[in-house]
Nucleic acid binder design. Sequence first.
RNA 1: GGCCCUGUAGUGUAGCGGCCUAACACGCCGCCCUGUCAAGGCGGAGAUCGUGGGUUCGAAUCCCAUCGGGGCCGCCA
Length: 585
Amino acid sequence: MLRTHSCGKLAKKHIGERVTIAGWVHRRRDHGGLVFIDLRDREGLVQVVFNPEVSGEGHEVATKLRHEYVVKVSGEVAKRPEGTENPKLATGEIEVIAQQIEILNPSKTPPFYINEDIEVDENLRLRYRYLDLRREKMKENIILRHRVVKFMRDFLDERGFIEIETPILIKSTPEGARDYLVPSRVHPGRFYALPQSPQQLKQLLMVAGFERYYQIARCFRDEDLRADRQPEFTQLDLEMSFVDEQDILTLMEELFTSLVENVKPMMRVLKPFPRLSYHDAMERYGTDKPDLRYGLEIRDLSDIAAGSDFAVFRSALQRGGWVKGICAPGCAHYSRRQLDELAEFVQARGAKGLVTLPLVEEQARSIATKFLTRQQITEMAMRFGANKGDLLLIVAGERKVMEALGALRQEMAHRLGLADPNLLAFCWILDFPLLEWSDEGGWEPMHHPFTAPRDEDIPLLDSAPEKVHAKHYDIVCNGCEISSGSIRIHTRELQEKIFKLLGYSEEEVRQRFGNLLEAFEYGAPPHGGIAPGIDRLVMLLAGEQTIREVIPFPKNQSATDLMFDAPSEVSEEQLKELHLKLRLD
RNA sequence: GGCCCUGUAGUGUAGCGGCCUAACACGCCGCCCUGUCAAGGCGGAGAUCGUGGGUUCGAAUCCCAUCGGGGCCGCCA
C-alpha cells in the first residue's frame, strides 16, 4: 500500500502518529512561508501543512502543487493550534504536518471545477466524466446507488431469494420497444437481441423451480431518450412462485420503506403506501403516475357546466367528454401573459384551450364569466373548496385532454413549490385494464401479454375484453413510475387464449413463445413478480432531476456516449465478418 | 417526425442595434506574504460572442439557414 490511512478517516485519535496519505490536491493556500493543502481521497479531506522549518525540501515541492495533482504525503498528525480549527471539515480539528511529499502524478488544469458544486455544461461533464465523478455530488450519488443495490441484495437474500444471471444475447421479440440487435458472425443473416427485460427468462426460472429469483438486470430499449429514460437501464428484476398480488405488494412495501429508512433516514415515506385504482388515478390526477406529495386534485365540473350556454363546454359534453379543472391557490392575480402561457401549456398537450377563472370581486377578467352565471361560478368554486384569490383552470374534452390537465396540475405544483422535497410519496396503482384498444385497431396488452387476468374476469375475455382487469400493480413515487409487475399466466390454455385475442397467428406464437408455452406444460407453478427501476429510484433518493446524475457513464439525448464517442463506425473488415452491408439512405 | 428553450475567455454569468477596442467573478500565469481553510494583496495573459448567410451607415444584439445541447409530444409490450 502506498498509504497507511485515508485522508478523510484521520481523526483526533491519530494525533501524534506518523502517517502516510495519498490523494488529490483539492485546494491550496500558499502563504509564501506556510503552504496549506487540502488533500482529498474518496473518504474526504484533510489539511496538510508544509512548513519550511519542518522540511525545506517538502515546502519547496508544495509550492509547485496545483489542482488535482496526485501526491503522497508522510507526516505527523497534529492537533490544530488553538483557534484554527475548521468546524466545516470533518477532519477540522487536526492536520498533517508534512515531512515528506512525493508527486505521484501532476495534472493539467481541469476543464471545470472539481472542488465547487456549480452548474457546468453537461456536454463538458460527459466528455470528462472521470473528472465529473470526482465532484462531491456525483461521488455521493454513485455511492448512494451502491448502498441501494447492496441493501436490496441483503434484503432479498434474507428472504430466500437467489440471484441468477440471465443472458444478454437473446432473441428478438418485435412487440414492445425497438430491440437492440447484435449480428451473428457464426450464423449469417441472423441476429441476437439485447433483452428489453428478462421477462420470459425469469418466468422460466420459476418453471425451473427456483421459487424466488432476483437479479440486478441491465435492460435495453432502442427508443428516444428522456430525463428518466436511457437506452440501457437497470432494474431490480424479481419473481416469486406460489404467491398472489398481496404477497408482492407486502414484500415491496417492506423493501422500499426499510430501504429509505436505511439509506436516506432524512426522507419521509407515506406508510402504508396509498392504493389507487387506475380509474381513480386518471380521474383525480389525470395520469396513471400521480405525484401525491400535494393535493391540487382534478374535479369534475361537467354537471355544473351542463347548465351553461358556453359552446366549448356544451360541445365537449355532447361528444361524451367532460369539463374538469383544478384550483390553483392564490393565483387569481396571474397576468394575461401568465394565463396565456398556461393555455399554451395545455394546448401543446392536445387541449383545445384553457378556461381561466380567477376568483376575484368583479369577475370581468375571464371570458367564461360571459357564459357562466354567478351561481355557476360559486358552485364550481365550492366544488374545489376554493377561496377568494384562487384561480380555477378548466378544460373541456375527452381522455387525452384530461391528461393535459394532469400535466397542468404538475406544472402548477412545480410553480407553486407545493412538493415537499423530503417526502417520498410512494403509492400503488391497481386494477389496470388487461387490454387497450389500439389506434391501428385490435387489442393490445396494456403492459405485456404474460399478465394474468383477474380470475373472476376470465369469462369476460370472450364477451367484453375491455372490462377485464389485470393482476397488475405499479409503484409510483413522486410522479415517477418506479416499477411495474404482475401475477403471470402459468397455463398454456390461458396464455394461448390471450395471444389469440391479441391477434397473433399460430405461427407467430409458435416462433416467439413456443418455448414458454411448452414450459407451461411441464408443471409451471403460479408465479408473479415485479421490476423496480433502479436508476429512477436512486434519482428520487438523490433528489436529482434526471437519471443521468445517478448513472456513472450515461448517454446524452441523442444516445451517444461523449467520452468514447459511441456509437462509432466500424471497419469494412468487421462488417464483412458479420455478413453485413451498410445501406445508408 | 413535431413543439419549446439554449449556445459570449478554461468555468459560470452580464451585455439584447452605436457608449463593446465585449464586462464581472472564479480559474490560469507572475510577484509579495508563517495559521489559512471559497486565504489575502499587486500585476498579467486569455473570447474573431457555435457556424454560414442576410437586414442595416453600424450586429454579440434583429431575421433566415445550419450545427451542437437540453426539456417535452410521438415512441417507450
